[in-house]
Structure formats: C-alpha cells, structure tokens
C-alpha cells in the first residue's frame, strides 16, 4: 500500500516538474530583458529541477528492482536535488551582479541608484 502512495506522489511531482519546465522555457522567449529572465530561470531551476528529482527518487524507491539499484538511483537523485537547491540561486545572483557591474547588459529602468553610487565611488568595495 505504502509503495503505491509513494509511486503516485512521485509521479505527480515529476509531471508537475515537466509542465513547469515547459513554462520556464517559453518564458525565456517571452520576457524582453536579461533581468526579467532571471524569474524564468528560477522557475526552471526549482520547479523544473528540484521537484522532479525528489519525485524520481520516490519512484525509484517504490519499484520492484534489486535493492542496490533502487538505493543508488534515489541517493543520487537526492544529492543532486540538494546541490541544485543550494547552488542555482547563488549562481544566478553572482551572474546578475557581475553583469550589472560590468555593463554587459544595460537595464532599461527609470532610475538606477546602484549605478549612481558606483559613479560616485561608494559602491566599489
């Protein structure tokens, strides 16, 4: 009984992750600016990567394979999910900071206080 519950929870999480991945990939085309596309990247990282990996770990635990195959697959899935949840937001934050500092993409905004402070020399440290 418990294995069927685990299987259906995992399947629901994986299907939800696939749909959110498609939404994020369409959002990469719909948003106009680099700083707007950071929202779509967050959907693609957490919704499209963290949820399906947890779901696949639950699915692999509930199958009738050998025990070492099940344990290997679900352990790798959980470790990869933890790595993604820790590193993907930090990575996109670093990238946005370096892009704004170096002037690779100039944001189309009304007022930009960080740029004014950097021109005065306050934001250098």
């Amino acid at each position: 009984m418990i294995d069927w519950i685990l299987f259906y929870i995992g399947l629901a999480l994986t299907l939800l992750g696939g749909v959110m991945d498609l939404i994020a990939s369409i959002g990469f085309f719909r948003f106009k600016d680099f700083y707007m596309r950071l929202h779509a990247a967050t959907i693609g990282a957490i919704g499209g990567g963290f949820y399906p990996l947890i779901g696949l770990a639950l699915i692999a635990l509930s199958l009738d394979l050998d025990i070492y195959i099940k344990a290997y697959i679900s352990g790798v899935c959980v470790i990869a999910a933890a790595l993604i949840a820790l590193t993907a937001p930090a990575g996109s934050h670093i990238l946005a900071r370096a892009t704004h500092r170096s002037g690779e993409v100039v944001p189309k905004v009304v007022v930009d206080r960080i740029k004014e402070d950097m021109d005065k020399g306050d934001g250098e440290q």
Partner: peptide
C-alpha cells in the same frame, strides 16, 4: 549577450540532469 547565454545554459543543464 553572453550573460543571457550562461543563464539559459544553467536551465538547460538542470533539464539534462533529469
């Protein structure tokens, strides 16, 4: 731009893991 490409490569890599 190159930042846009790196952001898309991040999402692509997470998709390829699955």
């Amino acid at each position: 731009s190159v930042s846009d490409m790196v952001l898309a490569v991040d999402a692509l890599t997470i998709d390829l893991i699955i």
